[in-house]
């Protein structure tokens, strides 16, 4: 079913949205950031996920009430060797999904460093959602919900637990983050027209879109794209052949 949905999306010709928001996904290596994102954009678990190289881009449009919001998602590498590379993408992010692994205490104790980096480099109105991932592995839990919840409250960030294996709760952090940003816009504390806010108004332009996040499905489908139909004979009139617009 998911396959068919995305096949349809890959050839979707129109895309409109009210807001565009830039998110970063950060946290230690191996906490399941890419898998969480994959669940969110593809509705499936990413088997044999490799370490992320630097940063990876994907996008998804979500609906919150009447508003359509396009999320630009930048998944970052947790590995130390890419630390300086990934930090240069924090700039201009409106939201950060900060991920730790509930079965790995180390990934929790390092959170302070990730948060400090994000706060220092991203939008001044940055909304952060702390995500305790791998909630399906209750038996191996090393970080209690209550402890993480306390840390989140102390550091003024949202908190919830997810499972990128089962897909449990994976949409929540992204939507929660979008809602907080929308509230900030509505209350006037965040101005989308300001440079570096990480948010912009959608142009509602009619556009054919083939997002790179759909690549795996688009190329599997093998269907001819709508944009490539042959020029018909009746189109062959003066001045119109070969010219797109003018």
């Amino acid at each position: 079913m998911a396959f068919n949905d995305y096949d349809a999306d890959a050839t979707e010709l129109l895309e409109t949205y009210d807001f565009l928001m830039k998110y970063i996904i950060i946290g230690e290596a191996g906490t399941g950031k890419s898998c969480l994102l994959h669940q969110f954009t593809h509705n499936s678990f990413k088997d044999h996920s490799q370490h992320t190289i630097g940063v990876e881009f994907s996008s998804r449009t979500v609906k919150l009430g009447e508003k359509k919001i396009k999320l630009q998602l930048w998944d970052t590498a947790g590995q130390e060797r890419f630390r300086s590379v990934t930090r240069s993408y924090y700039r201009g992010a409106a939201g950060a999904i900060l991920v730790y692994d509930i079965t790995n205490r180390q990934s929790f104790t390092n959170l302070g460093r990730w948060l400090a980096d994000a706060r220092a480099l991203a939008s001044p109105n940055l909304v952060v959602v702390l995500v305790g991932n791998k909630s399906d592995r209750e038996d191996d839990r090393e970080v209690e919900w209550a402890e993480a919840s306390r840390w989140a409250a102390e550091n003024d960030v949202h908190f919830l637990e997810t499972s990128s294996l089962t897909g449990d709760n994976v949409e929540a952090p992204f939507l929660l983050c979008a809602r907080s940003i929308l509230l900030a816009i509505e209350s006037g504390s965040l101005d989308p027209d300001k440079a570096g806010s990480g948010v912009s108004y959608g142009d509602r332009a009619l556009r054919r879109v083939n997002s790179s996040s759909r690549l795996s499905f688009g190329s599997l489908s093998g269907r001819r794209r709508k944009g490539s139909s042959k020029l018909r004979l009746k189109d062959y009139v003066p001045g119109t052949a070969n010219s797109k617009c003018c």
Partner: peptide
């Protein structure tokens, strides 16, 4: 692909 409109993510820019 020729004639397509694409969204390309590159090092923090789209």
């Amino acid at each position: 692909a020729k004639g397509m409109s694409l969204e390309l993510g590159f090092l923090g820019s789209v």
